[in-house]
């Protein structure tokens, strides 16, 4: 397994793991906040990638689950419940119900219809959260303190950072197993030819729904972390642009690779940070840059590495397009 992809993943994770050290040495605690946000979006993108990269289900509405996670923390804190386990339990429970219902409806469609119907559901939840007057409506909800997980003191930024980092690494390992498991094989089979998988006797709908729910739950967790980081829950977490950003991260990093979304999230958010430092009109640079990146490389940063590694026998992922059936 000594593929360039694996090496790059190790280097990237190593660098991300060293951020608090860098921040301490240069007395720049701000980097912890910046990279904590990057890690959180990396986790969300990782979750979405399970269905987008491996299952060819392009969900344009996963910000919805980030919102559910954030509001689970926000609303419970608002009512004086500070226990992190309660937040986690409530977030995952609501997320599971929402994802099962939404997924069950959405998965009846595929291709562009699937993109749009997931967007529709995200928009519905967005407007619902805007009308939650008791919880701040459009202004959002301020959270007094971070979730209380007992002996892990999240109020300390470094501890919080490593907690997020640990979740990211754990999820990467878990997803690695999932992707190579029978479940993952069926999922990838559905991506290349769902009809054949069904003909082979697999209940594809059930598999896809399970993947959708898992992927949504990862975003719920990311949303809870985001609420903890910003001490704030807001409908803007659920805007359709947020769902779009997640897709940009995945495609930029290389979809259908495990580490790709992490690289994409890191790359995109850092790029935004650097460009915004240069000019207020940074979007006029970022926009064409995205176009150029898409045109020049259709596999994302890690897709290229995966292609290199395929000769080394590590061709675990086949990124690139198979949504011809999306018509």
């Amino acid at each position: 397994m000594r593929s360039p992809q694996l090496w790059a993943a190790a280097v990237l994770l190593g660098l991300l793991g060293l951020v608090p050290v860098y921040a301490a040495v240069f007395e720049q605690p701000f980097y912890i906040t910046l990279f904590a946000r990057i890690l959180i979006f990396a986790i969300a993108a990782l979750g979405l990638n399970l269905i987008l990269g491996y299952g060819a289900m392009v969900s344009f509405g996963h910000a919805l689950y980030i919102g559910i996670g954030a509001y689970a923390v926000g609303i419970l804190s608002f009512h004086g419940v500070t226990s992190g386990w309660a937040h986690l339990g409530a977030g995952l429970a609501v997320g599971a119900v929402a994802a099962t219902v939404v997924g069950w409806v959405c998965l009846r469609t595929s291709g562009i219809a699937f993109i749009m119907i997931t967007l529709a559901f995200a928009q519905m939840f967005y407007f619902l959260s805007v009308s939650l007057k008791q919880y701040g409506g459009d202004d959002g909800l301020t959270i007094a303190a971070r979730s209380d997980f007992g002996w892990v003191n999240l109020a300390n930024n470094t501890v919080f950072y490593y907690a997020i980092f640990a979740v990211l690494v754990a999820l990467l390992l878990l997803f690695r197993r999932i992707v190579d498991s029978r479940f993952g094989m069926v999922l990838r089979g559905c991506k290349s030819n769902e009809r054949r998988m069904a003909a082979l006797g697999f209940p594809t709908m059930r598999y896809k729904l399970a993947a959708y729910v898992i992927s949504a739950q990862v975003c719920v967790v990311a949303g809870m972390m985001l609420a903890n980081l910003t001490k704030f829950a807001s409908p803007s977490f659920m805007q359709w642009q947020a769902s779009g950003d997640l897709i940009v991260m995945i495609v930029l990093g290389g979809m259908g690779t495990l580490i790709g979304p992490v690289a994409g999230a890191t790359g995109l958010l850092l790029l935004e940070e650097v460009l915004a430092g240069w000019t207020q009109h940074w979007m006029v640079i970022l926009g064409p840059l995205i176009v150029v990146i898409v045109i020049v490389s259709n596999r994302g940063i890690f897709g290229v590495l995966a292609a290199l590694g395929r000769t080394g026998g590590a061709g675990r992922a086949r990124p690139g397009g198979t949504s011809g059936e999306a018509r």
């Binding site: 980097y31 890191t266 940070e273 650097v274 590495l305």
Partner: peptide, 20 residues
């Protein structure tokens, strides 16, 4: 990988510059 590490390096450098 190179693209990415350069990016990070550039990011940190640019941010560091502002910090002077």
């Amino acid at each position: 990988m190179r693209i990415r590490t350069t990016l990070i390096a550039a990011g940190l450098a640019a941010a560091g510059l502002l910090a002077a």
